[in-house]
Computed example of a mutant assay.
Amino acid sequence: MIGEISVRELADWLADDSRPQPLLLDVREDWELERCQIAGSRQIPMNLIPLRHNELPDDVTIVTICHHGVRSYQVALFLQNAGFDAVLSLKGGVDAWASNIDPAMAHY
Rank of each mutant, 00 (worst) to 15 (best):
V63C: 06
F84E: 03
N100F: 14
V87Y: 04
E9I: 00
F84H: 08
Y108E: 14
P103N: 13
H68N: 04
N100P: 01
V7T: 13
E55Q: 15
R19Q: 15
V70M: 14
K91M: 06
L51F: 14
C66G: 05
R52M: 12
M105G: 03
R19A: 15
V7P: 04
I62V: 15
A86E: 14
E9C: 04
Q74I: 00
G69Q: 04
L56T: 05
L88C: 04
D17N: 05
L24I: 14
T61P: 08
R8Q: 15
E29K: 06
Q21F: 05
L33N: 12
V70W: 09
G93V: 09
P50N: 09
L24R: 06
S89R: 03
H107W: 10
S6D: 10
R52I: 01
N81M: 12
W31G: 01
V63Y: 07
Y73H: 10
S41H: 01
H107A: 13
Q74R: 12
R28A: 00
L79E: 00
I49K: 00
E4R: 09
A104M: 07
Y73G: 00
I38P: 01
M46D: 01
I101D: 04
E32P: 05
R42G: 05
V87K: 00
A11N: 13
V60D: 05
L25G: 04
A106C: 11
A39F: 00
P50T: 06
G92I: 06
R8D: 12
G3K: 14
S6H: 06
L10T: 01
G93I: 03
W31M: 08
G83F: 09
D85G: 05
V70T: 14
F78T: 06
D12M: 04
N47D: 15
R42T: 15
G92L: 07
F84T: 08
Q43S: 14
A106K: 15
A11S: 15
S18P: 07
